[in-house]
Write a protein that binds this DNA or RNA. Structure first.
Lengths: 369, 369
DNA sequence: AAGGTAAATACACACGTGTGTATTGCTCTA
DNA sequence: TAGAGCAATACACACGTGTGTATTTACCTT
C-alpha cells in the first residue's frame, strides 16, 4: 500500500540533496557531522531502509551469499550435520549483514547450473560451498567473474585446492585424539573402522589431499598409535559402507573376536551407534568389555540412553571462520582496491594468497569409554 | 573481469532498440515473431541473463521468497522434519523460478525483525512461514505492504487464521487412520500418547483451532474409536513431554499394565522409537504382545532394524501446494490486476479469499503392528 | 495514388542509489 | 578587501530494465 521511503523523500524532509543523504548514511567524510546526525535521526524516525535492488544496481553489491550444499543433503545422517552447519553459517553471515541463498549445485532445468545462473543474474556477491563434487567448470566460471568463494569441508576433485580458500576439520588431529584417548584408558588392541566409499563415487585422492577425510582420520589414528609404540599387529582396520546396519552387522558377525581391552574407533557416530546397539544384543558390555569412540558428536545421541564418547566436529568455528573469511574477501574486493592504489605500501606480497585452515576437533568423553 | 552482457549490448548486436529486446525476451505481443526468434537466439548464444537488481528495481519484483523457520529448528527431532520441508520448498520454488532466503523470525540486532528488514529493503516478494509463534505485528506489517504470505503447519497464536493462506497436515485424519488401523489388526485396548507441551509455551488453543496439532490427532483417534463402538473405558490417554527418554520411561514404568491386544498410538516417531527400545529391554514383544504406531514417518527409522508403522506427514504435497499457492498469489498481484480491470467478469466474488488446506496424511504399515 | 489504419519499432523517462564534478559559502592571508 | 583555498553541498549522470507514447513502415481501401 504505502510507498516505501526513499533517500529522495528523506532529502526533501531534511532540505538537502539526495546525494548528501546517501553520503551521510554511508558515512562518507564529505558530509558535515551535524548534517549526518540530523539525517540519521530522520532515517531512524521514519524506519528508512535502503532499497536493496537499487543499491545493488548502482554499487554492484547484493549483500547475498550463495550457499551451495552437497547432493548428500538427502541422506539422513549427513544432513544432520550439514543442516546445522548451514544454520550456523546463516547466523554468522547475519553478523556481517549478509543474507544467504541456499542452493543445490546440480542444475535442474536447461543445462545451466544454479551457480552460473546466480552469477549471470548478479544475484550474489560470493559463494560458500560445502560440496566436493562440483565440476571445475563452475570454479572456472567463478574465477572468471572474480567472485569470492570459500570452500568448506570438502575440496573438489578436479580443481587444485591451493587455489581456493578452504576450511575444514583437522581430521588427522581427530584420529590422533581418538588414539590418545583409547591409549589413556588402557586399551591394548585398536580397531579403525572407516567409511571409504562415498555415495557420489568420487575417486579416492592421494595421501596429501586435504579433503580425503577418512584417510586423514586413519592416518592420525594409526600414526599416534605407532608413535606410542603400539605394534601394527595390534591395529586392525575395517571399512564399512557407512550405514547403521553395516556397523550392527559388523559387531554381530565378529562377536567372537572381541576381547577385553579392545578399543573401537568408528569414523562416524552413526556407526558407533549401530555398534553399540549390536553390543547390547550380543551381550557385550560397553565400556567394561570393549570401548567405543565415534566421530561427529552428532545429535542422534539423544536417541541413546547412554552418551557416546566422540570427536566433536568444530562446526561452530568452521562456520565462524568461513563467514569471516568471505566477508573479508568481499571487503578486500570492494574497498581494498582503493587502499592498494592509494597507499602502495611495502606489503605488496602475494595479495591473492589463499587460506587453508584445518580446525582441530575436540574429544568429548562420555560413557562408552 | 569481463563485463556482463546487457539488453543494450544485445540490442546493438541485433540492430534494434533495447526496449524491443526487453519485450522480445518477456514475450510481449508487441514484437514481431521473427524479431523475437532472432533476439532469443542471440541471447542464448551469448548466455544472456537479466540483471536481477535492475529488474527488481524497475519491476518491483525480486523473484525471492523469504522462508521463515521456527525457533525449534535447533531441536534435533523437529529439525529433521523442518529441514526436509525446507528442502522441498526450495525445490518447488525453483519450478517457478523463485529463490528462497532462509531466515529466523527472531530479530537479532537492533529491535527490528528480519521480516521487517526484508520488507523495507525490498528484498523479497513474499513469505513462506513455518513458525507458529510469530507476533501479530509481523502479520500486520506484511499486510500493510500487501506481501503474499503462506503459512505452513502452524497458525500463529494471536492472529485470526481465516485471514491467511494455510497449509498443514490433516491431523484429525491422521488420528483417524491410526485408530482404523489398530482396530483392523484386532487391538482391543487403545492408548493415545500425545505431546501437549510445546517448547515455546504457546497457549493451548481452542478445540476448533486449526493449529493445535496434538489435539486434532487425539480428536481423530478417539472419534474414530467411538464411532466404531469402542467404549471409553478402553481408551487410555497419556501426555508425554516429547523426548525419547520420556517414552522409554513411560513403557518401563507401566510394563506391568500392558497386555496382549493393546495398541499404542504415539504422536511422534521419536516417542514410538523410545517406546520400542524400552519394549526390547523389558522383554515386551512388538507386535506380538503390543502394537505400536507412530507419527511423522521420520527418517530416524534408519536407526532401527525394525520398521515402525507410522502416519506419513504429507510433506511433499504441502510443500508443492504451498509453493504453488504463493506463486499464484504473486501472479495475481502482479499480472492479475490488469485482468480484473480489463474484464470485470461476473466472478467478482470474494477476490481475496484465503485458502486453508489440510492435507490428509498416509498410513505406512511396517513391522510394529 | 492518396489517405487511413494497424503493426512494429524507436524514443524517452522512471525505478532508487552511488559518485565524479561543479558550485556555493566561508575563512584566512597578503 | 580581493582573491585563494577549502569544506560542504548541489548537480548530473550512470547502473540495467520496464513501459507509455511517439514514430515509422507496410498494407489496404476507395
Amino acid at each position: 500500500m504505502g510507498k516505501r521511503m526513499t533517500i529522495k523523500d528523506l532529502a526533501e524532509i531534511a532540505g538537502v540533496d539526495h546525494s548528501t543523504v546517501s553520503r551521510a548514511l554511508n558515512n562518507s567524510p564529505r558530509v558535515q557531522e551535524a548534517t549526518r546526525l540530523k539525517i540519521m535521526e530522520l532515517a531512524r524516525k521514519h524506519n528508512f531502509q535502503f532499497n536493496a535492488s537499487a543499491r545493488s544496481l548502482s554499487s554492484r553489491r547484493t549483500g547475498v551469499i550463495g550457499i551451495i550444499y552437497p547432493a548428500g543433503m538427502e541422506d539422513f545422517y549427513s544432513s544432520l550435520y550439514t543442516n546445522r552447519l548451514f544454520m550456523d553459517l546463516r547466523k554468522e553471515l547475519e553478523n556481517y549483514q549478509l543474507d544467504g541463498i541456499l542452493l543445490s549445485a546440480l542444475h535442474p532445468v536447461n543445462g545451466e547450473s544454479n551457480i552460473e545462473r546466480l552469477i549471470r543474474q548478479n544475484k550474489v556477491d560470493g559463494f560458500l560451498i560445502f560440496h566436493g563434487s562440483i565440476s571445475s567448470e563452475n570454479y572456472i566460471l567463478i574465477n572468471k567473474w572474480e567472485l569470492p568463494v570459500v570452500q568448506i569441508h570438502l575440496a573438489p576433485d578436479d580443481y587444485p585446492e591451493e587455489k581456493l580458500d578452504f576450511f575444514s576439520t583437522d581430521n588427522r588431529c581427530g584420529g590422533k585424539l581418538a588414539a590418545e584417548h583409547l591409549i589413556n584408558i588402557g586399551c591394548r588392541r585398536f580397531f579403525d573402522i572407516s567409511i571409504p566409499f562415498c555415495k557420489d563415487t568420487r575417486t579416492t585422492k592421494s595421501i596429501n589431499n586435504i579433503s580425503s577425510e577418512t584417510w586423514q582420520r586413519t592416518a592420525g589414528f594409526t600414526g599416534e598409535l605407532n608413535a606410542s609404540g603400539i605394534k601394527d599387529s595390534l591395529i586392525i582396520r575395517y571399512a564399512l559402507s557407512g550405514t547403521f546396519q553395516t556397523a550392527r552387522d559388523f559387531i554381530l558377525e565378529n562377536r567372537e573376536n572381541f576381547k577385553p581391552g579392545d578399543g573401537l574407533f568408528f569414523h562416524s557416530d552413526l556407526l558407533a551407534f549401530g555398534a553399540l546397539t549390536a553390543c547390547r544384543e550380543a551381550g557385550i558390555r560397553v565400556p567394561e568389555d570393549i570401548r567405543i569412540i565415534g566421530f561427529d558428536d552428532s545429535p542422534i545421541a539423544v536417541l541413546m540412553d547412554v552418551g557416546i564418547t566422540t570427536i566433536h566436529q568444530p562446526r561452530e568455528i568452521i562456520a565462524a571462520h568461513a563467514a569471516e573469511r568471505i566477508f573479508n574477501l568481499l571487503e578486500e574486493k570492494y574497498n581494498g582496491k582503493q587502499k592498494e592504489a592509494g597507499k602502495k605500501g611495502p606489503s605488496a606480497g602475494p595479495e591473492n594468497a589463499k587460506v587453508q585452515e584445518l580446525v582441530p576437533p575436540l574429544l568429548v568423553k562420555r560413557e562408552t569409554t
